[in-house]
Every structure is written in structure tokens, then in C-alpha cells.
Nucleic acid binder design. Structure first.
Lengths: 156, 156
DNA sequence: TACGTATAGTTGAAAATGTCAACGATTGAT
DNA sequence: ATCAATCGTTGACATTTTCAACTATACGTA
């Protein structure tokens, strides 16, 4: 068999299981697209020594919303102890700073430093590129529609 | 502060971070909706001693497509060794059976037993209910549109 | 004011998952 | 006949998840 014929057969076989009814299952579709996207995202962010997780924290720290760690945990669907580790690392790299909450001194707000903000500017470019790869099969209108539907499903 | 006022404030605070630009990021939206959905799915499937993973394998085993373990690994974005563990457990419970591949005796195809098929019928009902919870904020047309866009992003 | 309960962040341990390299059996091209 | 590649499997190792404490702080109530 030629190399080309092999590749064709593999490409054909790769998606053979799409016919199974699980391809109608939203949970599965979300998981699969997310899995593929994570690989691309993490690859794109590796250049900045960031992963999806730390990138997310950095964005939120840079948002001006001064999130507390608890809010980060809730919003990112992570355990509070994972936020500790994430913020520890970003803080060690001087990308974010912890500050005591203004009304509640138990809480600590997480804010991006200017160094963190600058790094984020660069990383966001790479992340946007990765995103466009994930959604390569969709045109701009469809991509926007997908985002709108996901947001509506999450927050009504 | 009254309990009601507390709840209101928490509910308001819960989504405060939606304003951050990460809420425009497809990767994040996918991760968050998937995270929420997984909890519901696994809760719904626990009744049948299944998790999302084993449920997925069972569906594919029941599809009539006679997937090999390698195909399952590729399709579910899992390491082949994880498929071994998953199939081991389902086979021990007599829900699926391994059979040597017809053309390739290295491969093993995974097929649902009638017991597995029956269990799947029940589990699918619970899973559909969980899915409708995940997509509660969308009407039927929007849900269908979301699925169509996810499928297109994955397979063009 | 003092008390009791609840919450924020932190730590560390245990369980579950993910990643990877090796191996025997089998395949298929040369 | 040989040789490289692939399939399932095993086991080691790393990462992630989950959970139960603990301290400090908050806040309603007595």
C-alpha cells in the first residue's frame, strides 16, 4: 500500500465513530472540542511559561475587577487550594500581587502587576491565534454565534 | 443581614467576573460549561455505576460500529492505557465483550453485551435529563444550533 | 460586649487521572 | 526472511482533584 493510500485510510478511519449516537451528546462534544483546544492553547502559551489555568487567572487579575481568590475559584470551577498554588506561582514571578480585601480582611484580591499586564498582552495574541485554529472550520459569524450560545447556556 | 439579602448578594457576586474579557474566550467557555455538565452527568450516571468515561465507551460499544480500543482512544481523546482500564471494568461487569479484530488480530473490538445494551437504555434517559439541565437556558432551536456548531467545529 | 457560627485562605494527605516508555504479538512492505 | 510499525497491555511516574483540617476574620445575636 502506498503512503498516500495509508494516510487516506487512516484519515477515513479516524472519524469513523462520528456516526455513533454519542456525537449528538452535548457533554461529549464539549469535552472533545475542549480537549483539542487545550492542547493548542497550552502549546501557544508555553512560550510565556503559562498554561490555560495560569493564563485565566492572569486575565482575571488584569481585568480591573480585583477578584478575590474565592471568586476566582468559583468562576474558574477550581478548588480554592488550586487557586493558592496558581497565585503563588504568578506572584513569585511578579506577574500578580495579593492585597487584603478592602471590606473583608479574610479575603485577598489578586491584581496583575504591570509586568503581568505586559506579558498578558503578548500571551493574548498567541491565545487568539490558537482559538482561531480551534474554530478553523467555522466562519466568523458561526464562531460568534457559538460563543453567544455558550454564554447564554452559562449565564442565561 | 438577613439570609435572603445574603443570598441575593452572593448570587450577584457569583457572576461578577463575567465582565472580564476571558468570558469572550471560547476555550474558557467550553471548559466552564463542560465542568458544570460533567458534575450533572456523573451525578445522573452514578445510579448505574457509570461515569462519563465508561458511559461513552458503552455507547460506542453499543453503536454497531465495533470500534477497536485504538479507535476508542483516538475518538475519546484518551491514552490507550486508559481505555484498557475502562474496558477491563466494563468487561468484568459483563456489559461489553472484547473480540479479536477480524482483519487485524492485534486489535480488539469492543462490543456491548445485551446486558450492557439494556443498562445503556436506562442510563441514556438519565443522561438526556442531565443534558437538558445543562442547556436549560437555551430553547430547543438554540440547543440544536449549539450542537450543530460544535459538530462543525470538530468535523467540518 | 462576648459568643457562636460561618467564611477566606492555606496546608497537607489521599485518591484519581494523565503521561510515557517498554514489551510481546501481529502486520505488511520490501 | 526480514524489518519497521502498530495494537493492546503493564507499570512507573507526574500532575490534578478532592477533602479535611487549621488560623484569622466577619457578623448576627444574646
Amino acid at each position: 500500500m502506498t503512503i498516500e493510500a495509508q494516510d487516506e485510510q487512516q484519515a477515513a478511519a479516524k472519524d469513523r465513530l462520528v456516526a455513533a449516537p454519542i456525537s449528538q451528546d452535548v457533554g461529549f462534544l464539549l469535552a472533545k472540542l475542549h480537549a483539542g483546544g487545550s492542547v493548542l492553547n497550552n502549546r501557544a502559551l508555553a512560550e510565556f511559561d503559562l498554561k490555560e489555568r495560569s493564563y485565566s487567572v492572569l486575565i482575571l487579575a488584569n481585568s480591573g475587577l480585583e477578584p478575590t481568590q474565592r471568586e476566582l475559584a468559583d468562576f474558574l470551577s477550581l478548588d480554592p487550594s488550586q487557586i493558592v498554588a496558581l497565585v503563588d506561582e504568578l506572584e513569585k514571578r511578579k506577574l500578580v500581587a495579593r492585597a487584603p480585601g478592602k471590606q473583608d480582611r479574610r479575603a485577598k484580591t489578586v491584581t496583575a502587576t504591570s509586568k503581568g499586564s505586559q506579558l498578558l498582552d503578548q500571551a493574548a495574541i498567541a491565545a487568539r491565534l490558537a482559538e482561531s485554529e480551534v474554530l478553523a472550520a467555522l466562519d466568523d459569524g458561526e464562531a460568534a454565534q457559538l460563543k453567544a450560545l455558550l454564554r447564554k447556556a452559562l449565564w442565561g
